[in-house]
Computed example of a mutant assay.
Amino acid sequence: MQKIIDAHIHLDLYSEFEQKEILTTLEQNDIAGLITVSNHLESAKKNLELAKEYENVFPAFGFHPEQVLPKENEMVKLINFIKQHENEMVAIGEVGLPYYLRKEEKDIELEAYLELLEQFILLAKEVDKPIILHAIYEDAPLACSLLEKHSVTNAHFHWFKGDQKTLERMKANGYYISFTPDITYKKEIQNIAENFPLSKVMVETDGPWQFKGPFHNQMTNPNMIHESMRVIASIKQVNLQEAYGQIYQNTKDFYKIRG
């Protein structure tokens, strides 16, 4: 195994015991760092504290779209927090559009979520940081349009799922996507990897989200990424060492991680 970075994990959602288990075994598992995304202000505060304690934790601050919209005063506090700590974060995230929430609640107004996403895109541009997006299937083109509207290209679509037309659009715009451990057992995800350039690929766990296949009933741990890497190397028909080197460098470059 070679060094790799988990490009998307909700570290603050693990128990303290699980966090310690993950963080104290990173080196032995060849995990060079964690991009820890946030769901809201309290989540961002927790991730910032973890980053202060562990040098290989790289926090991102945002508002996860699969929840009720924040009140105006909550957004003001979150934006102020982000601006106050912009030098301590690597990105704006996780932000995006509520695909799954709309499946459960048909009366959700998408327009308000689009306005919120646009606000975060403008904020990312203002603080000159990448943006981490939750935008899948028919929501992905909507996110692409907002990014294009404001000429933002430093975009990471995590756990992307969507059609070939959208994939081509994302390739043309230079966006990055990342794959979770479900690439080891889902043909849909394997097909996306086959059709996206390795130079724009990262790997993630999205932990503590749990997976099936070879990871059934296991706590999601960044060390699962190594199985993803073997599958990606096979799909892209490259040497495993080359795949590790490329994806590790992709993640470091995108998030401006030194060392």
Rank of each mutant, 00 (worst) to 15 (best):
Y137K: 01
K46P: 04
S145R: 15
N239G: 09
Q84F: 06
P222C: 10
V201I: 15
K200I: 11
D253W: 00
K45P: 00
Q190K: 15
G174W: 12
H216Y: 06
K149I: 09
K3L: 11
V152E: 06
T36P: 01
V231T: 12
P181Q: 03
I132S: 13
H158W: 01
H156N: 12
E227V: 05
S199P: 02
S38F: 14
L50D: 00
F215P: 10
N250F: 00
R169T: 12
E115K: 14
Q2R: 10
L133F: 06
P130S: 13
E16I: 15
L240P: 02
F179P: 03
L240D: 00
T180K: 00
A7M: 07
D139K: 06
V57E: 01
I121L: 04
T251D: 09
L198H: 01
E53H: 05
E104T: 06
E204A: 13
S228C: 11
S228F: 12
I79V: 15
A7P: 05
E16P: 11
L26M: 14
H8G: 12
E105M: 10
E42D: 14
F179Y: 09
Y176N: 08
T166E: 04
E188S: 02
H226A: 06
G174D: 04
V203S: 03
L69N: 15
G93F: 07
I35C: 10
I131N: 04
K186L: 12
A233Q: 13
F58G: 01
K200G: 03
K171T: 11
